[in-house]
Write a protein that binds this DNA or RNA. Structure first.
Lengths: 306, 306
DNA sequence: GTACCTTACGAGATACGTAACCATC
DNA sequence: GATGGTTACGTATCTCGTAAGGTAC
């Protein structure tokens, strides 16, 4: 049996939010846009409320939308209630954040340095909280998130896991190809995606989904030549060792090149490779206030470009 | 894509209601009972809120439940907001009810008369509104509801239609068997379910689902003898004509006997037939304020016994 | 051992988007 | 004919109940 007609509360907050936004915008399309839903949804939500209440809240044609007197009154009442509600929730959340939550953020290599502006902004906003960086490996990008060892990962897109939420992009940049200093390409100064077919790339193993690996390490070049997957490695340093030894090459985000000068390895820009987006990612069911606060800060700050 | 993190409103009203009730009861079981949900649901809802807020709202063991300081404060804030919200919605709804809504209620035969106390109570509570009775036939109990021709039907239970909501029971009573005045049973003064097997009963046709028809006109007697379905009829008066002519007998709620003395027909009580419940029923998507008001009135009044 | 809160999992309900439709200018 | 609100319908998501599990008395 479902909730039944216990009493009151026949309308949900989501519908109220839609109503209030429409009351402000007086335009279904803009309302939908602001709330990131389809115009159809706005229409459905408003109709539902009007059915429930048995009164028209808006007078509308396809040319004009306006509040009815009942709607106007309802808007005032609901706005006040919602403000109160948000204030209460915000206060409780602040109590949690103030108590000081530690956020473990997993990044590749030393990318944490590049994210310094974000961390600083976050710390400034939420003095009680803090961010610690941990390392995450391409061979296993999600496990630490799922076990709860980390709260957030900074991963290249696309990430399409049903249990994970992809938040704002924090970093954008190009790609580089890591090659041995002895490699013939090293002297060219740049590399192309086509060059991958002439070399082995590291095999990251089965810990990462194929679609995600392929977006960094394609299986074919743009012209369709197969890219051979070579020796296996799990960590960043294992990869660089294999590259330095000349056993293979490997594509990486250019963040990797920023604070690394490993002996015997050269990073060659790949101008023809599409740009990368790195986004905050977390377990959907573990979106605590600290995670949301970081995401909000990142969204306000906008992506950092390399 | 789902709603996204547009802004606030991360908690739904239903969860808030659960939180507030638990804050009052300080007992998961009682809270669940009051809200007509399972204890598991209460636990889930509270945990979810605590995850979202990142703070414990209740201290609890399996022996004791109490509010944390944060929870106590949140309760005050939310209670105030919810009160405001309900007041606003109630005002809008009252505006609709005050504008005078006409409710079309479908009943069998003259059952409307028996419902007089309900109608009077409803009219007294909502002076702007009114109830009109229309007739509904056993051969087609739902169509008028689905087309919107009627707003509510008074139907015997069980009603199990996915698009219909079953509200409070308004009437309880026994059953009678309509037989011709010439029928051998007429002199006995009462009838038994077993007697049905010796006579044809009216066939109501395909307009009503079998489970519903069978609850009034079984296909077999308690002892398992088949009950023959005889001539077809759609309306109440058609049924009585067939019965009067001696072509068949037919079981009915005893409401039917109350205000009817059709010539040539006798109604025999059936003491061994289980009692009937008659409940308000409406289209789930058409539960306007008038319908809810009637349902609430009926719930407060309790069922009328014949 | 009993009362009672929690976790795991599956089924049903509902929110939502897409696409086609209709109305107003 | 362009802009903008509505309806129909299928799908993804979430709510919720059932059942099994844990914990304090």
């Amino acid at each position: 049996m479902r909730g039944s007609l216990t009493l009151g509360l026949l309308v949900e907050l989501r519908d109220i939010e839609i109503f209030l936004t429409l009351a402000e915008e007086l335009h279904f399309g803009r309302t939908a846009e602001r709330l990131r839903v389809s115009p159809a949804r706005v229409s459905q939500a408003v109709s539902k409320q009007e059915r429930r209440l048995g009164v028209a809240l808006f007078d509308r044609t396809s040319r004009h939308v306006s509040l009815t007197p009942v709607g106007r009154r309802l808007r005032e009442d609901l706005q006040q209630a919602v403000d109160l509600l948000q204030a209460g929730l915000a206060r409780a959340e602040a109590a949690g954040l103030g108590a000081g939550q530690r956020l473990r953020v997993g990044v590749f290599g030393h990318a944490g340095h590049v994210l310094r502006p974000l961390v600083d902004a976050f710390r400034a906003r939420y003095p009680g909280s803090d961010v610690q960086f941990g390392e995450v490996y391409g061979s296993d990008p999600f496990t630490a998130l799922r076990t709860g060892d980390n709260d957030v990962h900074v991963l290249w897109l696309p990430v399409a896991e049903p249990d994970l939420t992809v938040g704002p992009t924090v970093l954008t940049g190009g790609r580089v190809l890591a090659v041995s200093a002895d490699h013939p390409l090293a002297d060219r100064g740049t590399a192309s995606l086509e060059d991958l077919a002439d070399n082995h790339v590291v095999d990251l193993g089965p810990g990462a989904p194929e679609y995600w690996v392929a977006s960094m390490v394609p299986t074919r070049t743009p012209r369709g030549r197969r890219i051979p997957r070579g020796p296996a490695a799990r960590t960043f340093h294992e990869i660089l060792s294999l590259v330095a030894a000349g056993h293979c090459v490997h594509p990486l985000g250019d963040v990797a090149a920023r604070y690394n000068s490993p002996p015997g390895v050269v990073f060659l820009p790949m101008p023809d490779a599409p740009a990368l987006q790195w986004a905050l990612t977390w377990r959907s069911t573990a979106d605590g206030p600290a995670v949301r606060a970081l995401a909000q800060t990142a969204a306000d700050l906008g992506p950092i470009s390399m």
